[in-house]
């Protein structure tokens, strides 16, 4: 587990002759072992924030500090960060089981039992020897989740991982996410444009707009949440208003 302290974080892109800020002077604290959802319209800086967190992008200015058992550290080097992308991004030449163990290929000679445990939890046991082209989109995304878990990260970053899935598969995976969060006690940062999904999953919803945080909203409902309860609808309504305002 680990928390993140973000102070004055900016990311500037230059496209042609125009420069714009994908993130501008952002301050955010992500608590150790919490589930944070980041919502906002396309291009609000959600994905940029995740990519900065896992070191796939260089920040323009500001600070990202990871807090592990009370001590703060710079950069993501000593922190294990697992990321799940919008697409499964599985290695087509590896089986499902090998894909799950992929993150530790350079460090481990053989695949550990953990891989089989994740296969079982994620309902992929029957397909462990299949190749990515042989399984459905939902199973592929589950494999990507298994890959992130096998890495045993302190923080799991998720970039609209269920965006491309059908309604039923998405619902099922959302429930799996909740039980995973309750059992694993890791820090989750989940980016989505689906307000309902954000409220269903997270303890805190961050609303982004043009690279700035416009609202931070705690969701104090017990899991599992009912999407048709008045409290739930209240919160989603509030976030919706904050985004269109």
């Amino acid at each position: 587990m680990a928390g993140v302290r973000i102070t004055g974080l900016s990311k500037r892109y230059v496209i042609g002759k125009e420069a714009f800020f994908a993130l501008e002077k952002m301050n955010l604290f992500i608590e150790d072992g919490s589930f944070t959802a980041i919502v906002g319209k396309s291009g609000c800086g959600k994905t940029t924030l995740l990519r900065l967190l896992c070191g796939l992008e260089e920040k323009t200015s500001g600070d990202i500090k990871f807090i592990n058992r009370g001590s703060e550290s710079n950069g993501s080097d000593e922190m294990r960060i697992g990321i799940m992308f919008q697409e499964p991004r599985l290695m087509p030449w590896l089986t499902i089981r090998e894909n799950i163990a992929f993150s530790l290929f350079p460090k481990q000679k053989e695949i550990k039992k953990d891989a089989d445990r994740h296969l079982q939890t994620l309902g992929l046991e029957l397909f462990k020897d299949a190749y990515p082209w042989q399984i459905s989109g939902g199973m592929a995304q589950r494999t990507a989740l298994g890959r992130a878990l096998y890495y045993d990260p302190d923080i799991i970053l998720m970039d609209e991982p269920f965006g491309a899935l059908d309604y039923f598969t998405r619902k099922k995976l959302q429930n799996e996410m909740v039980s995973l969060f309750l059992n694993q006690k890791k820090t989750f940062v989940f980016v989505t444009h689906d307000i309902e999904e954000a409220v269903y999953l997270s303890e805190k919803v961050i609303v982004l707009e043009a690279g700035r945080i416009v609202q931070e909203l705690p969701v104090e409902l017990p899991y599992p949440r009912k999407t048709n309860s008045p409290e739930f609808l209240n919160i989603t309504e509030g976030i919706y208003k904050a985004i269109i305002a």
Partner: peptide, 27 residues
């Protein structure tokens, strides 16, 4: 590029990115 980013996000060194991603993809 997407697959290379997976390796990068897991902190693969350049040599490992070649061995585990570029070479099998090019094979």
């Amino acid at each position: 590029e997407h697959l290379l980013e997976v390796g990068e996000s897991f902190g693969f060194a350049a040599r490992d990115r070649f061995k585990y991603i570029i070479f099998p993809a090019t094979f």
